[in-house]
Design a protein around this nucleic acid. Structure first.
Lengths: 243, 243
DNA sequence: CGGATAGTTGAGTTATCTCAAATGCAGTGG
DNA sequence: CCACTGCATTTGAGATAACTCAACTATCCG
């Protein structure tokens, strides 16, 4: 199970650096205005080690999460073990943004790296968002981005070839990471195992290995210890093709 | 281009029979309360013949649609013509429910049969929904259902075999149609061309033809003139497998 | 150091695709 | 009313992308 951090809220959030991007800061602020002493309760910071399941679909939970540090995956599975990752969650991302108002979900959320995250009481979150116009707008914008990404994933799985899918995954990650200031030049942290890539792209990890080797042999990328460097961005874009 | 109907609003809505299911009635009511004379303007009923594109992604539109009659498809395409249908829209469904608050979308909406639909001004729609708690709840519920369906589609495309996907499509349609009172026993209207099925399931229309023939040979379904009958529901469910 | 997890590579299999030709069917204009 | 054109469907043959299986190596963690 997840273990509560002893660090005080402010320390964690000060280090977060994502205040502008995520809803955390605004929620924190609204909350402490409204219910000064209740605020701490609703914003329990927690952590989980890599591979741990943070949210199980059977679990009935009134919470939504925001990832503070680390990577997680939101996925959905079949009884025979086939699994599809619906979204990779990076710091600042909200799990269940799109079903913030509903308690039930078939999705599983799983830590990829060690993660720290905050749980928000859904109904309080909802109240706060609905009573603050700026927050609502920001929330709606996040929803829309997420929806657009989901549409593209559907297109990927239904209509694109394996190499296009993988190239898109990489390019998409670079965009999202650079927005967060997590790129070092062309190099990014890359904690994904090949089975994560496989489950995100609807492929087999064996096949992912082959495609990645191919990309490296072609001088498009270079993968090192938990990191990935793009050598030839234009080339990678060309694999994807126009739009 | 779409042609405005001369039929008065009330006639069309009285015949619709979907008032409880969709947001139409509530919106109509709220609207006429607020701005009696403006209401007619915002709710232009329109119609389009089969195959016509109702919404083009380049088109910048301030409207959301609700389908009154007929079937439509919301899809997204690549420049080389590959196409993925994201959702089949049945009477009472809202196109762009999930991006009701944003003007931009990559999606195309296309009539499958002749359709009639209503356009709603997005921002007015938004105001109405946000100021009426029941409406908001209903809207949120619709969003959630849609999201769940989208998740399942992603799972289908990434992880399920062709026959499972097609069986799921059929079963999903029977559910949605029976909620609308559009099933006659085990028989449903089935205006989809095989290329619609193909584009919805990420397959080729040739392959769809083979799978459907297989289903018929196995005595699971029977397809006739723009209609489909399920002969063996349990068998069809078994094709899909558990969950 | 040992055991588990992750990645690589090759050989053989299969689901699905592409291409192509034949048939049916619906709407249009003469 | 017929012939014509365009779209939809069926079917078969052959091609191919991605999969399965399996063995081997590398890496990580206690």
């Amino acid at each position: 199970m997840a273990i509560a951090l002893s660090m005080p809220d402010t320390t964690l959030c000060a280090a977060c650096g994502l205040k502008d991007m995520s809803l955390c800061a605004a929620v924190l602020k609204s909350e402490s205005n409204l219910h000064p002493e209740a605020a701490r309760l609703s914003l329990t910071p927690q952590s989980a080690p890599a591979r741990r399941t943070i949210y199980h679909p059977k679990e009935w939970s009134d919470d939504a999460f925001i990832i503070c540090n680390g990577w997680a995956a939101s996925s959905i599975s079949l009884p025979d073990g086939r699994r599809q990752i619906l979204a990779l969650l990076l710091p600042g991302d909200i799990a269940f943004a799109d079903s913030l108002f509903e308690a039930t979900s078939r999705r599983t959320v799983e830590a990829i790296t060690d993660v720290t995250y905050r749980r928000y009481n859904r109904s309080r979150f909802k109240d706060i968002i609905l009573t603050n116009r700026d927050l609502l707008d920001q929330y709606v914008k996040i929803l829309h981005e997420e929806r657009a990404r989901a549409d593209e994933l559907t297109l990927d799985l239904g209509r694109r070839k394996s190499d296009e899918r993988i190239a898109r995954l990489i390019l998409d990650l670079t965009e999202r990471l650079s927005k967060r200031g997590m790129m070092s030049g062309q190099t990014m942290p890359f904690p994904l195992r090949q089975r994560h890539i496989a489950d995100a792209t609807g492929l087999t990890s064996v096949h992912v290995s082959k495609v990645l080797s191919e990309f490296q042999r072609a001088g498009l990328i270079e993968v090192g210890a938990r990191s990935l460097t793009i050598i030839n961005t234009a080339g990678l874009r060309q694999v994807v093709g126009p739009r």
